[in-house]
Every structure is written in C-alpha cells, then in structure tokens.
Design a binder for these strands. Structure first.
Length: 364
DNA sequence: AACTCGTGGAA
DNA sequence: TTTCCAAGAGT
C-alpha cells in the first residue's frame, strides 16, 4: 500500500460530488456534521446486507412513524417489527430500538468506540455513522469498499483479512477529502461502477487501478465461500374457526424471531421418515412456491382449512380476523396472508382428515 | 472461527 | 434457472 490514499483517491471526491444521488438520509452539505445523526443510524442499520433501492421505502415509512430516537425508544416491539416486516434480518430492528433507547437516555456517542458499543453497530456501521454523522476520519469498510480498495491496490488475497491495514491506509484520504464524502464515494463507486463485473470505462480511478492494469478485475476480490443450504418441504396452514385464525406468536430467537407465523410442519425432509400427508387434504391445497432464506430453501405447500371447535394448543393463539393484517410477518407468511384476501374456499375436512392434520402440525 | 440470520436485484 | 451477493453483526 505504498501510494498514499489521499492522492490515489483524490479523483473520487469530484466524481462523487457530480454523480451522487439525493438519497433521503443523505446530507446536502457533505462538509458539515449531519443535521440528523438518528437518520444516519436508521439508514445504516437498514443498509446492512441490503441494497439502497430496497431500503428507501422502508426508511421513509420508518422516519414518518419514528422521527427521532425518543419516538423509537417509546415504541412497542410489535410496532417496530411491523414497520420492519419484509426487510429481513429482523434482529436489526430490535438492535436499532435498543440503540435508540441508549441514545435517548445518554445522547449520541461522539467517538468510534462509543458508537461500536451500541447494539447492532459493528466495525463497519460504527465507522459509517462516525464519518457521515460526525465527520470523524473513521474508514467504513463494507463489501463495496473492500472490493474497490482490493482492486485499486491489486490485492490478491481476501481484503477482509487486511481490514486493519486498509483502515490505517485510508485515514489520510478521509482527512484530505472529507470523511463523509470519501466514505460515501467509496461505497457509491463500488455499488455503481466497481461492481463485481467491473465497468472500468466509467471509473474515475481507472488510470491508477492495479487490478485493471493486470487484467485481474474478475478475480479480485476472490469469491466468498457459499453457504450450505438445507432443503425442506413444508405445509403452511391457515386454520380458521369462526372469525379467528390460528397463529404462532413471535419467538424470542431463531429464524423470523419477533414475527408471527402460520402453523407449519415439514412433510418431506431430506432424510429420515417423513410424515405422510393425510388422505383427502390435498383438495384444500393452493399452488405452492419456494421460499429462500440464507441457509434454507422451503418448498411451501399452503393449506386452508376451517377448524372445528379447538382450544389454542400450546404455543399458538387464536387471532381475530380484523387484527390479522396488522401482525408483523416475514415474506413467506405475508404471502399466505395475501392468498386469503382472494376468493378462496375454506373446505371443512372430515373428522379423520382433521385428526391427521392436527397430528401433522403438532397441534394435537 | 464457523454459523446463523431474510429478502431481492441483477446477470 | 441458477448464482452471486448486497452500505454486516452476534454468537
């Protein structure tokens, strides 16, 4: 990392000032502290592993409902999850509220260590808030910044292992060209030009780029190892009795923690004995779909049934139909909820089928 | 230090 | 269709 970052990255500042988009959380004056650090905090939590275009509508709704840290601190967890529902990685929502409570209580930390002590803020997010909200020269290394710097310097190994060295190298560039401007410029370049399939013709750093000089854009940085994905077939059941639906209240941890869900049961796991669907119940199945998570693929078979009288089993609750639309749900369960708004018939199963279904879903 | 944790855009 | 991976953090 011999060339200085301040000189190597100098073309990035005028480039960013010319091309930057007016994102709703982005300050107009990149040389001043941000007028609303809370807005920066919200945007950065939402942007973790999530693209800008996906975040924008969630950010707008969030700021309208929770305009400051005090408003978020006083909200119910269900209200918080209702506004986050569909965005994914729901722990972020609980972390953001916990961070807002700390800020409402003791004010915003004004240093990197204090920011990183807030729940949900790791090395990247703490630096991103420090630079964009407070103009502190803290390099924020996200996937974009790692890719840009690795290519620019021609680093052949995984740049994430060089995080400490890259941060030290970048500090003078933030000091020279403005922490907020340089932080956003690095990420914007990685998101729009120095993308995995590099568009070097549009890059303001092309002349200085070592990866381009060597023709190694395609192999720098090296690909991340892919996660193992387990495949599951499951029944997702909308069970109605009178004017209420049988639902599973939010769990404290695990997949979709904090969200409501429909009763579900695996029907054809990859190995071991799989439960046999009861005779006759296929008549109430709707067309299925595949739900994809990071480490899991579900082939979802939605099922609609009208239930006889039934006390809510352990771990389930009957929810009045008029409350159904307000419950925070993940995409899979939102999708089944959406199917219920159409003209669907609820077929009352015969006694044997119902009994088998209860067993299958663990409701017996 | 691996694993877990959602969803969707884009090639 | 499949594949990659996105303004990562917590455990």
């Amino acid at each position: 990392m011999e060339p200085s970052a301040a000189s190597l990255l100098a073309p990035l500042a005028p480039w960013f000032d010319a091309v930057r988009r007016p994102l709703p959380w982005r300050a107009g004056d990149l040389d001043a502290p941000h007028p609303d650090p809370y807005a920066v905090l919200v945007s950065e939590l939402m942007l973790q592993q999530t693209q800008v275009a996906t975040v924008i509508p969630y950010f707008e709704r969030w700021m309208a409902r929770f305009p400051d840290a005090q408003a978020l601190a006083g909200a119910s967890e269900e209200a918080v999850h209702a506004l986050w529902a569909g965005l994914g990685y729901y722990r972020r929502a609980r972390n953001l509220q916990a961070a807002a409570r700390a800020v409402a209580e003791g004010g915003f930390p004004r240093d990197l260590a204090g920011l990183q002590a807030l729940p949900g803020l790791g090395p990247y997010t703490a630096a991103a808030v420090a630079a964009q909200a407070f103009q502190l020269p803290a390099p924020a290394l996200d996937g974009n910044a790692f890719r840009v710097t690795a290519r620019l310097l021609g680093l052949r190994e995984d740049p994430r292992r060089l995080a400490a060295e890259l941060r030290a190298w970048l500090i003078p560039a933030l000091e020279a060209h403005g922490p907020s401007r340089m932080t956003q410029a690095l990420m914007e370049l990685g998101a729009t030009v120095c993308v995995p399939a590099a568009r070097c013709g549009a890059c303001p750093l092309a002349e200085a780029c070592e990866a381009r000089r060597l023709g190694l854009q395609a192999v720098i940085p090296p690909a991340q190892p892919k996660a193992k994905v387990t495949e599951v077939d499951l029944v997702l059941a909308a069970i109605r009795h009178g004017d209420a639906w049988l639902l599973r209240p939010p769990a404290a941890r695990g997949l979709l923690a904090g969200l409501w869900s429909w009763p579900a049961a695996p029907i054809a796991a990859g190995d071991g004995p799989s439960p046999t669907p009861p005779m006759g119940w296929e008549a109430t199945l709707l067309p299925g779909w595949t739900q994809v998570y990071t480490h899991r693929r579900e082939r979802v078979r939605p099922l609609l049934v009208r239930a006889p009288e039934l006390a809510a089993p352990q771990g389930f609750a009957w929810v009045p139909a008029e409350r159904l639309g307000t419950l925070p749900m993940g995409r899979r369960d939102q999708r089944l909820r959406g199917l219920l708004e159409g003209p669907v018939g609820l077929l009352p199963p015969d006694g044997e089928t119902w009994k088998a279904l209860l067993g299958l879903l663990g409701l017996g």
